[in-house]
Amino acid sequence: MRRPVVRISTVTMAEAFLTAETGVVRLEDVSLQYGSGPEVLRDVSLSLETGSFHFLTGPSGAGKTSLLRLLHLALRPTRGTVRLFDRDVSRLGRKHRPALRRRIGVVSQEFGLISHLTAAENVALPLRIAKANAGEIRENVTELLRWVGLGRELDELPEALSEGQKQRVAVARAVIARPDLLLADEPTGNVDENAAMRLIHLMEELNKVGTAVVFATHDESLVSRFGHPTHVLDGGELVRADPVEGMIGEHAEA
């Protein structure tokens, strides 16, 4: 199956220079707390290479979502350094975030689809934001939705789609602009086992064309079926990391 070759340039020359990095994500002693509450992440250090595939697992409340939100620039660390694409984003101003976010795709358990837009319109959003022309958008959206098996559902509103179909629309939207990093937060939580397996295979296909994937799930049995590096969070601490090729940093070396 041929992957659509969408790539909309949303980066400046300086950012393009930075894309020559090998580390997509580098966390150094990162801690996070909401307000004056307890720390939900504690001294987390982690490095992920370009084009790698990682599982992030652990029980509910372990800090997986908080970690992904940090990587998606929705939160700032209380302590430590977060580097994305070789750039320190720990204290990044809000006006610089959109450009970086366009290099990151996000899939969540709630899908995050806009209810009054069709499947095609939802998938087209990142390209519209990147000011791609209408013809280019039409071509790539149609091709990508066919690729994820939704060629007949282009004009359907989310309410007319099954949970699995919604998830595939969300994935298509997350990858339409060929992100360098894909963050998936419990994406299999609302779909059956078959759909979950298909989703992971879909993400592996995306990974093969260079997108680094961080797949967060509490389902360790699902993780065990794939041979990707796995990071285990518990109580806000990174307690274990399976040393598999593609992972660097202190936990890999441990």
Partner: peptide
């Protein structure tokens, strides 16, 4: 909610 989704996929304040 929709604004949050747009921000998550890279829409700036101007958009």
């Amino acid at each position: 909610e929709e604004i949050g989704i747009l921000q998550a996929i890279g829409a700036g304040d101007g958009y």
